[in-house]
């Protein structure tokens, strides 16, 4: 199949969904908003697209917005398993010469069993997840794979594991070189972990000044394994793991 520029096949010159959503949300400058409303007034397709937005959830009869909102409010009011931002950010100094030359990692702490509720929250859909939280200055936010990062940014991780197993976080530079980053240190190997969402892993990773793309891989295997069983795969950001293992990857784009 050959994908065309726009699968929706809208007439040329019609605004994107993002633009219409921002118009509906009142986020556009008045001049742009006025021009778009004029366009929608003379464009049958865009008039329908705006009507869809005006209808809100009424356009989706199967949706249950009251139930969705109630679920969100309930989740927000749950006490966090542990206020991870209150933990200290640990700096361990430079790594060995080989690692320091290649990796983003300047500071890494050691593994400790995740704190939190005794009964882990098992994800119903059974997916492997690596969540990354960025602290830049005093601001903290969840980061997305592919985001831009800068020297001095500090990262912390939480994991979502569909089943119990053994996990290891490894960093990979643009040349494909792999280095364990959690646990870290001589003889670092996978650690056992229970199914469900972990609390934040202890310690933080601080990014150095080397620019370019780098990756953090969460490797999850049914048996214990070591970093020597991992190798670069074909292409940037690819890693080969033992049979039966799964990998979740996170791309760090480091500004030049």
């Amino acid at each position: 199949m050959r994908f065309t520029e726009n699968l929706a096949g809208r007439p040329a010159g019609c605004p994107s969904d993002l633009t219409l959503d921002r118009l509906h949300a009142g986020e556009l400058p008045p001049e742009q908003a006025r021009a778009l409303r004029e366009h929608a007034g003379g464009c049958e397709v865009c008039a329908e697209r705006m009507a869809l937005r005006t209808q809100g959830f009424a356009a989706f009869p199967e949706a249950r917005p009251d139930r969705l909102l109630a679920g969100i409010l309930a989740r927000l009011e749950e006490p966090p398993a542990r206020p991870w931002w209150s933990l200290s950010w640990v700096r361990f100094g430079a790594l060995g010469a080989a690692a320091a030359a290649a990796l983003v990692l300047l500071a890494v702490a050691f593994w400790s069993p995740p704190p939190g509720p005794q009964e882990p929250v098992v994800r119903a859909k059974g997916s492997l997840g690596l969540n990354v939280f960025l602290k830049r200055g005093e601001r903290v936010a969840e980061a997305l794979s592919g985001d831009s990062f800068q020297a001095g940014d500090r990262l912390r991780f939480t994991l979502e594991l569909p089943v119990a197993g053994h996990v290891l976080l490894v960093a990979q530079d643009a040349q494909g070189r792999l280095e364990p980053c959690h646990p870290f240190g001589p003889g670092a190997a996978s650690r056992p972990a229970q199914a469900g969402s972990t609390g934040p892993l202890e310690g933080a990773v601080e990014l150095d000044e080397a620019p370019g793309d780098e990756w953090i891989h969460l490797v999850h295997c049914p048996r214990p394994f070591g970093p020597d069983e991992l190798s670069p795969g074909a292409g940037p950001g690819a890693v080969r793991a033992p049979e039966g293992c799964r990998v979740a990857s996170f791309l760090l784009r480091k500004a030049r």
């Binding site: 990756w215 891989h217 490797v219 795969g233 074909a234 292409g235 940037p236 950001g237 690819a238 890693v239 080969r240 793991a241 033992p242 049979e243 293992c245 799964r246 990998v247 979740a248 990857s249 791309l251």
Partner: peptide, 8 residues
Amino acid sequence: CPDPGAAG
């Protein structure tokens, strides 16, 4: 595009 999530 490569598949960075592929294992093995």
